[in-house]
Amino acid sequence: MSQLHTLNKACFEHSAVQDCLKALADGDALILLEDGVYLTDKFDSALKGRNITLHVVQYDAAARGLHPQNAAFIDARQFVTLCCEYNKTLSWY
């Protein structure tokens, strides 16, 4: 069973990020929101080769002047849809 995770921290060494990484399993999805969008590139690398889908909240990235290439941007409605698609959401903050 796959889970949805959310993460809102900017520092890769933050305990929320490290705990999230421990909990992520293949098949899961991760949403970067708020300051978490600063880690888009880092997570792109960290998740290479793993079957984990990365999503980035578009308005949080835009607010911060970030326009990462190839980011899978989502808006609020798509955030909701993801929460419906996955059985539960684990929030790391």
Partner: peptide
């Protein structure tokens, strides 16, 4: 924190989507 704002955007979207 941004938590209440993120939650509000989420809440608005979920109601708009019929949830």
């Amino acid at each position: 924190s941004e938590a209440p704002y993120s939650a509000l955007r989420f809440a608005e979207a979920l109601l708009a989507d019929g949830h």
